[in-house]
Nucleic acid binder design. Structure first.
Lengths: 349, 349
DNA sequence: CTGAAAGCGCTAACAT
DNA sequence: ATGTTAGCGCTTTCAG
């Protein structure tokens, strides 16, 4: 069952069938209709490999993420898949688990399958490995920052806006002793989030306390460990901001273990607004960064690069917004107010 | 840069290069060595599309899951990716979101990319759609149950073992009023879990109370809704078992909203043992089903089908174990005991 | 053991 | 507007 079969049955040449399938406008509509009918009837679809081989276009985009088990990424993948499929692209997803060996393997796979573009959503591990892709002129899209070569688009996340809102929210509640648990500091995005935090703190007239800035690793376990460290200091903060929600969930867990109540004894804030943040105990105040927006922008950037007539320079930067979402893990600092109701519980329905 | 370049530089024919790459044993070792050196030096790798086109082997396995945003699946994907890559296969993942339209699209994509086998990890939505794959003799692997055609392998999960352990754990604590929140009942796996529950209950001499068996949908939201329904009855259960962890997390959240303490006022048990179950408030007692085992078995089954000399019948069924993991969301039924310490908290470290 | 040559199913010149 | 034909990069007979 190939293009020849269709050609024979429809009584045309294979070239005409090919043109019909590819919507070349010069095909006689009557003939096109006949061809489509035969295609339907015989339930034919083109062989992607052959098509890719001859046209040099695989119609595959690669997506490199750091770890698929962090719920942030599946939500991103979902969006990426939806948008890519919609545009006729297949996607090849691979997670590096922060391991350079895996990253290398990852890139090799992308190369072998001849991806037409790659979205590197690892938040900043800009290894020279990626040069292998850049050198072959494969369009790339990064978050925040990347090699400033042509063919590289950037998704600029406005960390400052959301984080400022977060810090102000905390400050408005009366917090002055605010801690920050960072991501892995070799990640550019982790640096950016921290910088935004420090800056926002200063804007509120608060001097950052170095001891209260502790490095995490964007995992549950890292959040637990960081929270533990924070509580061990002579003077503890009254609020903890986290570089991502997984860290915050780890912190929540450690507070539970330490018999401390959130937000009564400690306020906790996350970043990402993953789905599950809505149902933690207590529901997590966090900063929303839209996975869908990120995914859509990535695909758009890649398509622009691939499909541009190579002459007209496509837009190279895309802005991604962030926004505070207040839930119940943040409150007044301890001892500040007369007893407030512990948890403003009411059933949703 | 293609096979011809290598042939020219190594001073052999392209056929010899091809044989070398494919480890055909008849190649003169000296020559093979020379060829490999050239390949290394020039950093060559074969064009997968061309290879697939001529050999008819895409070296791609498809993986169909229900929803990537349920943390169970990313963990499964990770395992599947690891094992498949290790065996030289690429993977094509697609989620159906329980939507038949998406399922159709999914299958179409698999067909177009000429996957050599598909693992259907949707837990039971055996649509006639899948016939499209079966008809083309594409090896398939299902969880629990599937069309008994040749070329179909089954991963048999031993729900009974884990669920019996769970029920007995509850019964041992003194619970008699035990509720079960099912998954979508059109899913075979959901039926199996429910059946195992009912059976285990009877084994303990407890008659299932129909009102306390409520249908969920394996989502957070479904868990919340089901818990709400359960609390509305005149007589509430003292323990709730859930068909998966996401449901249980939803239940935990609703208990929080309803100002009920877990496990003091209500015991809650999950199923799956996703990573995050370890840090819920309180940490979730659940039944472990190994994602990695599932993934490994799926790839093994597919490979066996693909690589068997079509004559020797590969093993067709693979057993997957389940095992109770006791944490802190289960306890004595309310009022049963003198006051026990509310939460056995201590820091881990 | 190695090389020459025939395609895999399709697209894209080039003719008509 | 349609048909003819030459490959895309590789594997695999078939000769030697």
């Amino acid at each position: 069952m190939d293009i020849r079969t269709i050609a024979r049955v429809a009584n045309v040449s294979i070239a005409t069938v090919s043109r019909t399938i590819n919507h070349v406008p010069t095909v006689n509509p009557k003939i096109a209709k006949r061809v489509w009918e035969v295609i339907e009837e015989l339930n034919y679809f083109p062989n992607t490999q052959a098509r890719a081989l001859v046209s040099g276009r695989s119609k595959i985009f690669g997506l490199i993420i750091s770890e698929i088990t962090n719920p942030f990424f599946p939500e991103l993948i979902q969006g990426f898949e939806d948008v890519a499929i919609e545009s006729g692209y297949e996607i090849l997803v691979s997670s590096t688990n922060y391991d350079p060996k895996r990253m290398a393997q990852c890139i090799r796979r992308m190369l072998e399958r001849k991806v037409e573009g790659v979205a590197v959503m690892t938040f900043g591990i800009e290894e020279p490995l990626l040069d292998q892709l850049a050198q072959r002129n494969i369009p790339l899209v990064f978050i925040d920052v990347g090699p400033p070569s042509p063919g590289v688009s950037l998704l600029k996340v406005d960390y400052q806006h959301g984080i400022r809102q977060g810090v102000q929210h905390l400050a408005a509640l009366g917090h002055r002793k605010i801690s920050f648990i960072t991501g892995p500091l070799r990640l550019h995005s982790a640096q950016s989030r921290l910088a935004a935090f420090t800056k926002s703190l200063k804007e509120c007239g608060i001097t950052p306390h170095p001891e209260w800035i502790v490095e995490g690793d964007h995992t549950l376990e890292g959040g637990v460990a960081a929270a533990e460290k924070l509580l061990a200091f002579d003077e503890s903060p009254t609020a903890i901001m986290c570089s991502n929600d997984m860290t915050a969930i780890g912190v929540l867990h450690h507070m539970y273990r330490a018999n401390l109540r959130v937000p009564d004894d400690m306020s906790v804030m996350g970043f990402d607004n993953i789905h599950i943040a809505e149902v933690t105990t207590p529901p997590l105040t966090t900063i929303q960064m839209s996975r869908f927006e990120l995914a859509r922008a990535a695909v758009t950037a890649l398509r622009a690069q691939v499909e541009s007539a190579s002459s007209l320079a496509p837009q190279r930067e895309y802005k991604i917004a962030t926004e505070l979402v207040v839930r119940e893990s943040t409150g007044f600092p301890k001892g500040t107010l007369p007893q407030v109701p512990k948890r403003p519980r009411k059933s949703k329905a």
